[in-house]
Amino acid sequence: MTLMITLLAAVVASIVWYSKAPNSTFSIGSLALMYWAATLMWCVDGIACLVEGEAFIEIADTAAMLDDAVLGLVVVIVGLAVWAVINIARDPKRIFSKALTK
């Protein structure tokens, strides 16, 4: 479920990036790349699980699936938080610098 939620976040971020392109003021492309890379890495992890005889995505155990879903949401929120911190630090519209120097 973590993989599926991150994949969904990557698709949504990519659609937003595409609809805003070529304007990239808030670096949505970076957020999309972050989610895509994590999705790829978890795909490898899933394949490794398959090789070891486990499931690619845990769906048999409801408790484990729910735990994975919550983890997926946490991962998406952390990704958004990192992206927000980067944008606050970069201040692409110079809002903070203008407000502080006023």
């Binding site: 957020l31 890379a37 994590a38 991962v75």
Partner: peptide, 20 residues
């Protein structure tokens, strides 16, 4: 820069999973 974003982003999100 794209590769850097992919690697650092992926590492950060996987680190969260490992901490979890």
């Amino acid at each position: 820069g794209w590769l850097m974003n992919m690697l650092w982003g992926g590492v950060l999100l996987l680190a969260i999973e490992h901490i979890w």
